Simulated scan of single mutants.
Amino acid sequence: MGGWNRSNIPDQTGRTVIVTGATSGLGEATARALAAAGAQVIMACRNEIKAQAVARTMTGNVQIRQLDLADLASVRAFATGVERADVLINNAGVMAVPKQRTADGFELQIGTNYLGHFALTGLLMDRISERVVNTSSLTHFIGRIDLDDLNWERRAYSRFGAYAQSKLALLLFTYELQRRLTLTGSPKLAVAAHPGYAATEISSETENLLEQIVGLGNRLVAQSAEMGALPTLYAATAEVEPGGYYGPDRFNWRGHPTRVNSSAASHDEKTARQLWELSERLTGVEFDI
């Protein structure tokens, strides 16, 4: 698989792909590549004006629809307007921001990165014909799921702890979703990807000295958003293993997509089931699988 790049993307003509957070960084690079390969791409974005400006620079069939993952009413409204899609790419996210709440009272990072995507996937599951791709992160290795305080109501808040928890939650969700699909005999796939260390705008939202440190790392070490998007593009278009996890082939940091390992915590089936049940209660969304 080494060396897989955009030129290896199969012809996407006739396929419809939803990409959340497609106005910048990994999401933009993903949407741009898929549209150029012939897919009808639905850019699911919070900022429609910014999305329109980005879409004008793309080649291919691109549609823009408003979606705020930090507001379940917006998630439901978006899902209502989707007739069908072959692939859902859950890419949008916020990283290491100060403690904030979503419209529904969730901690912003778990609410946006995970619970919003959990709800979106559940609402669209009957109209997704092929696969769901969740974007995780290397930080999931330091993540810890606190089922008793998922939304940081009692714990001392940690920006990176909250981010890592949300990315671990996405992997637990991916693997549990695949187990349930397999159990019912569904041909649909749940897979995950991570970009390694890629320079994107998400790292500019930390609002403190860390932003300057990350910015320096972006200039000296990080690969481009285009390279960081390759594992997601692979997960979305290539022949993949059910429940597979894909990332860069050079020490998980840089390079071309390959199958990678995730933490032991991400494979904890009991925690995955409990997180799923909690997520259904918090979002009010139950999966029809």
Rank of each mutant, 00 (worst) to 15 (best):
Q223E: 08
Q165W: 12
L172S: 01
Q40N: 07
M125Y: 04
T102N: 10
W253P: 02
K270A: 09
G38C: 10
N208H: 15
R154K: 13
A70Y: 05
T135R: 05
F160W: 06
E107V: 06
R254H: 12
E83Y: 08
Q274C: 04
V94K: 06
G228Y: 00
T232Y: 07
D148K: 06
A190D: 05
I213M: 13
R76M: 01
E280M: 12
R84T: 00
V75A: 14
G27L: 02
R179M: 01
H267T: 01
A36E: 10
L181T: 09
R101N: 14
D11F: 00
P257I: 01
N134F: 04
A55T: 08
V82E: 07
D148I: 00
L183D: 13
I64F: 11
L150R: 03
M43F: 04
S279V: 12
P98Q: 01
S136C: 02
G21P: 00
V191R: 05
G105M: 12
K99D: 14
R254C: 08
L147C: 09
A229C: 03
G243P: 08
E277R: 03
T57N: 07
V54K: 04
E176Q: 07
E153L: 13
A22D: 02
I289R: 13
G105Q: 15
E207A: 14
W4I: 01
I64K: 07
P231Y: 00
T258G: 06
R180H: 15
A96P: 08
T200F: 03
P98S: 07
S204F: 02
P242M: 15
G81T: 07
F118E: 00
V240W: 03
Q165I: 14
A53R: 15
T20G: 15
G143D: 07
V87N: 11
R56W: 11
I18A: 10
A92N: 12
T121C: 15
F106E: 13
A238S: 05
E226K: 01
V87E: 14
V17H: 14
A79M: 02
V75S: 14
G38Q: 13
M43D: 12
G105Y: 09
I289Y: 11
P231M: 03
E130F: 09
D288K: 09
R180I: 13
G217C: 05
N134K: 02
H267Q: 10
M95C: 15
S24H: 06
N61S: 14
P187R: 03
A192M: 10
C45G: 04
Q66W: 03
T258I: 15
F251E: 07
